[in-house]
Amino acid sequence: MTAATFLLELRRSRSLTAWLVIVGLAYGGLIAVFYPTISSNSAVVDQYLALFPREMIAAFGLEGSLADPGIFFNTYIGSLLWPILATIGAVLIATRSAADLDRGWIELPLSTPIPRTRYLGALIAAQLAALAILAAATTGGVLVLGLLVGAPFEAGHFALATLLAFAFGCAVASVTTLLAVVTLSRGTAGGIAAGIVIAMYLFEVVARIEPDLAGLGSLSAFHYLEFVPVIDSGALPSTDLAVFGAVSVVSWLLAVLVFRGRDLVA
């Protein structure tokens, strides 16, 4: 990694990250403000939700009462807002190597003594920083505004949730980085990455609805993005973190290896 490249990449991610943070804070904060209302009317809300098809409820990860902070967070943030924000952020930032090749920028830093490994390392570090900021802002917004309106949220539990959310984002970003250096096309890499995320979401929903296809769930990243025990009891999601961590490390390492030996032809 080079500090100059890292700082430049961070700067280039600034605007996108800021907009995603605003979306995360606005949506998450708004939802959190409504938590006391939902909680005090949980019986009516549950009755209302029972009117919807089971498949739809499963699709939103809503299995239990919304009065439960874990279910509440998982429904509105964990399985909805965060995957969307993380995927948008990860795809746009992690495909930058391909986009920079296409625009003819990447050759400039690579014509200097900076090795390709260090260059891509700086890009990955910038991805990590942007995702960390985004995850912290999204979960932090829910926590702070929830506490302000009297929600029984635990800061320590939310810190663990931030870690899990960050790990999920890293997994998406790392696979996207690998796809970007393999295809050297932002459109192709971003499309495949987004397609994979959507397919995994469907796998998880199908696995929840059809017990015969429950095995599909383990193929899905969403299977490991389970916030309920984290928010409710502060359970360290070590298995989930290990899965996301392994995917991230392996994908990024592969990306660096591929990038080292890749012809830079747009």
Partner: peptide, 13 residues
């Protein structure tokens, strides 16, 4: 690259 300075025909600044 420590010994070379390069200028492309149409760099994407």
């Amino acid at each position: 690259h420590r010994q070379v300075a390069w200028l492309g025909s149409d760099p994407g600044y």
